[in-house]
Design a protein around this nucleic acid. Structure first.
Length: 301
DNA sequence: CGCCAGGTTAGAG
DNA sequence: CTCTAACATGGC
C-alpha cells in the first residue's frame, strides 16, 4: 500500500535524507536508491515502510510531498494514522519555519546558512529512550566512533525483522537494557561510564521513573530537570533529547563542541567560544535555539 | 605521535 | 560555589 504525505514548502527531502545517510553504520534505517527504509513497531505489528520524494506523475494535486510505501502488507485506518503521525514527527513537518527564516535573515552567523540549507529540518528521534542512549553514546567521543558503538549495541541487543533476505532492526528495549552489565557492554568498547549510564537509563524507563508521555506535557525547564535526575544525563544530553524527541524549539545543548566549533569557524576565530559566550550569543535566537543549533551543525565540514 | 571528540560526575579547594 | 581529574579509545 502507498500514500502521500503533503509537506510544507519549507521542507527539503534531500537535505533530511542526507542527514539520514551520514553514517554507513546506521542500522535503524537504510538508504536505497533514493528512498529511506525503516522498521516501525506499532503494537505487536512490524511495519516496514519506505519513503521517497513524491514528484512527477504520481503526484498532481499538491506541490510537495513524501511518497510512503508499506512493504510488508497493509495497515488499517488507525495504523495508517499512526504511521503518518510518526513520519510527521520524524521530519518535524508540523513546525512552521517561516518565522525562523525571517528572524534569521541578515544574521551574521546564520543568515547565509538558512539560505544555503533552506528546508532542512530537525530529523528527530521520536523515541525518548533511544534519544537519550544515543546522546550518551555520543558523549565526549567522535561521532564516527559513536556510530560504531551504536551499531554493536543495536546488533547485539535490538531485535530484527527479516524481509526479502534483509534484516531491519529495532532499538533495544528498556527491559533488555536494564538487565545488561559491564560484562555485556565493555566488550563492545563502551567505557565503564557509558556502560553505567546506559543501564541506568534502561532502568529508569523500565521501572517507569521516566515515562515519555508524562514528560511530553511539561515545560522545557521541568522536563530538563526530570531528565537530569538520571545519572549520566547532564544539560547537554537532556537538551539534545528535548530537541530531538519533544521538539522544544528553545532547547539547545550549549555545551556542544560541534556548536562551539561551528561558531569558531564561521567567525574565522582562533579559539572556540566559552559556554557562557554561546548562551549569550543564543539570546538573539530566543525561541529558535534548536534550529539555530541544527543549522550550525550543518555548517560543519 | 598528539590532539581532539555532538560531556558528566565526583571530589577537592 | 567553582574548578579539575578521570573516564577511555577511535579518528585524523
Amino acid at each position: 500500500m502507498e500514500f502521500i504525505i503533503t509537506t510544507p514548502s519549507e521542507f527539503s527531502f534531500d537535505l533530511c535524507a542526507e542527514f539520514l545517510r551520514r553514517s554507513p553504520r546506521e542500522l535503524l534505517h537504510q538508504w536505497e536508491d533514493g528512498s529511506v527504509r525503516k522498521l516501525l513497531q506499532l503494537g505487536d505489528k512490524h511495519v516496514l515502510f519506505e519513503l521517497r520524494e513524491a514528484i512527477g506523475e504520481n503526484f498532481v494535486p499538491v506541490e510537495k510531498g513524501i511518497l510512503v510505501r508499506v512493504l510488508n502488507g497493509t495497515l488499517d485506518k488507525e495504523e495508517q494514522h499512526q504511521l503518518i503521525q510518526y513520519i510527521r514527527a520524524w521530519f518535524d513537518l508540523d513546525t512552521d519555519l517561516k518565522p525562523f527564516y525571517s528572524k534569521m535573515a541578515g544574521d551574521k552567523l546564520l543568515g547565509n546558512l538558512v539560505q544555503k540549507f533552506h528546508g532542512y529540518r530537525i530529523v528527530g528521534q521520536p523515541d525518548l529512550f533511544e534519544s537519550l542512549i544515543w546522546a550518551v553514546l555520543g558523549q565526549q567521543i567522535n561521532l564516527a566512533f559513536a556510530y560504531t558503538l551504536k551499531q554493536r549495541f543495536v546488533e547485539q541487543f535490538g531485535s530484527h525483522f527479516e524481509f526479502n533476505g534483509k534484516r531491519y532492526y529495532t532499538f533495544p528495549t528498556p527491559q533488555v537494557v536494564a538487565r545488561l552489565t559491564d560484562a555485556d557492554l565493555l566488550p563492545l568498547q563502551f567505557s565503564r561510564q557509558k556502560s553505567k549510564y546506559t543501564v541506568t537509563i534502561g532502568q529508569a524507563f523500565a521501572n517507569q521513573s521516566i515515562v515519555q508521555g508524562q514528560l511530553a506535557t511539561l515545560a522545557l525547564a521541568d522536563a530538563r530537570d526530570a531528565l537530569m535526575k538520571i545519572k549520566g544525563v547532564g544539560n547537554w544530553t537532556a537538551n539534545y533529547a528535548l530537541m530531538k524527541t519533544f521538539r522544544y524549539k528553545d532547547a539547545f545543548p550549549a555545551e556542544d563542541v560541534g556548536v562551539h566549533n561551528a561558531i569558531r569557524i564561521l567567525r574565522n576565530a582562533k579559539a572556540k567560544p566559552t559556554v557562557d559566550q554561546v548562551r549569550r550569543l543564543f539570546r538573539k535566537y530566543k525561541g529558535w535555539e534548536a534550529y539555530a543549533t541544527l543549522y550550525l551543525w550543518k555548517s560543519l565540514p
